[in-house]
Design a protein around this nucleic acid. Sequence first.
RNA 1: GCCUAGGUGGUGGAACUGGUAGACACGCAGGACUUAAAAUCCUGUUCCUGUUAAAGGAGUGCGGGUUCGAUUCCCGCCCUAGGUACCA
Length: 990
Amino acid sequence: MDYSHKSIEQKWQKFWAENGTFKTAESTEKPKYYVLDMFPYPSGAGLHVGHPLGYIASDIFSRYKRLKGFNVLHPMGYDSFGLPAEQYAIQTGQHPAITTETNINRYREQLDNIGFSYDWSREVRTSDPSYYKWTQWIFMQLFNAWYNKETDKAESIETLITKFETAGSQNINAESDEDVLTFTAEEWKAFSEEEQQRELLKYRLAYLRESTVNWCAALGTVLANDEVINGVSERGGYPVEQKKMMQWSMRITAYADRLLRGLDTIDWPEPLIEMQRNWIGKSVGASVKFPVPQLDTNIEVFTTRVDTIFGVSFIVLAPEHELVSALTTDAQKAEIEFYIDKTSKKSELDRMADTKTVSGAFTGSYAKHPITGEDVQIWIADYVLAGYGTGAVMAVPSGDQRDYVFAKHFNLPIIPISDSQNIEEEADPNKDGKYINSGFINGMTYQEAVPALISKLEGLKLGKAKINFRMRDAIFGRQRYWGEPVPVYFKNDLPYLIKEEELPLLLPEVDKYLPTETGEPPLGRAENWKYQDQYEYELSTMPGWAGSSWYWFRYMDPKNAESFASKEATSYWKAVDLYIGGSEHATGHLLYSRFWNKFLKDLGFHNEEEPFKKLINQGMIQGRSNFVYRLSNFGTINSDVKFNNIIVSYNYYKAFIDYFNSSKLDEIYLGQDGFYEDINQEILIFSLDKFGKDLANIVFAKDSSLERLTLRYNSFTPLHVDVNIVSNDILDTEKFKSFRPDFADAEFVLEDGKYICGTEVEKMSKSKFNVVNPDDIIANFGADTLRLYEMFLGPLEQSKPWNTNGIEGVYKFLRKVWRLFHDAEGNFNVSDEEPTKAEYKALHKIIKKVEDDIERFSFNTSVSAFMICVNELTDLKCNKRKILQDLIIVLEPYAPHITEELWALLGNEAGTISYAVYPKFNPEYLVESEFAYPVSVNGKMKMNLPLALDLDAKAVEEIVLGNADVQRYLDGKAVKKLIFVKGKIINIVV
RNA sequence: GCCUAGGUGGUGGAACUGGUAGACACGCAGGACUUAAAAUCCUGUUCCUGUUAAAGGAGUGCGGGUUCGAUUCCCGCCCUAGGUACCA
């Protein structure tokens, strides 16, 4: 019987599903291992070959870990709230739940075809009420919590209330809004309920506040900073404007430092850690106050270089700074207003792009230097950002390049502050020298000056050490329908949680999925949707990242109705051991998930500080488009002749283009014999000879009265051609005619009888006809081939274009595996004889290799090693059970269907190969007496020495000299030096 | 600009801590089997010089360096991809 991937794969996929082969339970006998994929948003387009790349890798890893005796949790689900289903609903009126359900079913079918070992009994869907009940519940916990900096963790809001009741607001060290009140215990108790709630809201981790948001009118919603790319929405590319709105926010900044420190404890790709680090953006420095006596206030600045304070020659405020108008003198008023007006008209994009022009305006006012008391000019300029630090900086032109440029431009003083500075051309921020012109720190080093200054400023009550973060609190509301409702109602404009037993707060039905006439979110359309028929519910829904910020917990205990996951489940499965997904989630999902994980830990629901111990980013699979080149834009003498359906092979096209590029001609002419440079058909172009003749044959056969054709650089138009009718870049011309019926009578100018297509790497998209569907590959070659080939394509973490060219090689390999178990007639034929040494060697090489490769996620090299191994066994005509059985266990993670079939043919119980024991590597089989390795002599010549010399360095000298081969080679020369590496002779110096 | 990763045949890529560069696969060329096709198998395939061959030379983006020996380590530069953007 031949290898029939179709029947084998269907048979085993059915078997696994019916027998629950991959159902996982908590087990005390085996160590646990949790392998997680980033769950997909089920889009209408279905999966293309790029999607399963990471899933295949994680499946290989899961299956490998099972063979290694681990109890593996490997689940899958759907991040099923999201915009596309809602957009579709707006257009068609179909409920997003229906669209989502349809798409999920399609995804499931496609995933099943690939033979993943998911435990589908643990599937989760974020849009399922039994799931989002717990998303809402977590929101409630966040609302009911504050961050105590004293204990460095989140606590129940009750502990804060107790503190307020006993000692008022003093001694509270909390993460909060900036405008918190100061009050005593008595004052607190005297507050009205409303006042108390208003105050508590400033401390809650989920809180409401007026904030400037990225409002996208086209999408009718608010976007997070990371959903806005270059001023337009990430999804759809619509313009985004700044708008003030009451918004739910998450106090993720409370966790900034823990999020940063945690990065050192996890095994993630360096670029990703770096991205999170930059995103959090911690800078250590000082906050310094510059008194402004005339207004009886201070200007607070943040600096990372408090040591340069004596170099301050002016202060710069952001144009939006609140003190600007008060500081502006009458004389400067016109100038300042003009400047503010000018910068406010600049879009965010312009302000970003234009970093060269120096601009700013003097307010006319002065502040006092906190230490010297001297007058310091106050300026405004748009290089200072209102959103970072305090929106004001102390300018030190000698130490900061931007300040330097600004000072030069406006002719402000530049004060050198260090004896090692060179400020002739530009600012010099070095910290190496001793200070000059710096009052009491003159002569000190950087290390001495900083603490001295901090304590001085603290003594003056004009400054203190401070740490600043770039990260902002995350906005947690969308004016959308298809998301989790926020379990909140409003009484006197203040938010209150609904009762826990009333969860889930179900998404109500609406007549349309659009905002209401009054501009409320779609939920405003829900009729009679009121808490206890009295109070308005919150009308915004949660953002896309809500449901994905805790889903790995739900897989641990997916059916639990009492909690999001039981303590037993979380303490058994702990954290995710291996997480595979794309790097595009670096500052979104991966950051929010870490935040919620830490929060839930603080409340005691589990014990893991970090959710994902090891993370791998799989690369993107790009599309590889194919092109054909159609003759167009040409001239004829009699203009009624048309040749719009002649299509030339790629290399002709390329030669043609190259010719134009090198010859710099505007036109060339096609005559009966080929291409000519001149209109009189005298100078024949030999480099395009064959092409010209082939093309002429077709053209002049169509119209013999024609004298010549005039062709220009753009005379051939590239057309996208469906990659599915192209194989190894050779076009199936018959299929092309049905692909483009408008070219049914097309004629092809072939090279060597073939039509070769041009190629280009582009994004995979329908319009470029370069989408490759895994189902098609599976139909032709099978799931095992797809799995192996996706791995074979290159390193997992690298982005690469999809290219089906090499898939034959992998398919051939699987057939060779099949043939090892079958004789020439196709009958199953495995012998019980004892294998030879060579056979054991081939086997043990692959056992070791695959083990090493999988542990370091180098799946592509394993596939090559499998090919070598099977070629060796084929050459040895090996059909020994002892070899083949171990071989298929090692291969099982990569190609589970064929191995499962062969496993059963060997007489093992059906469906048990996944839980077989990974064969033990025995190094003895790899040792061979004839093994030799190269050495060089005087670093140049090369020769092979027998393994007999592969000994401990001390013993070698004698043996070398006594070795016949070496003696013959060295021909009596005296050996001066022997160089050893790892006990082997590498070089002999004579 | 800054941060990170990378640059190896016609192509995808291999070489794991410095030790025969180009494994494996695709493609290509030639051959075997076959009436033929498919399938399968065998041989060759980095480039240059050389009539085949023997042999020699060059060679991992470019220029230097360390080393007996560098795709691998160091310095400078060029290019590509991803991230980030006046962060005080």
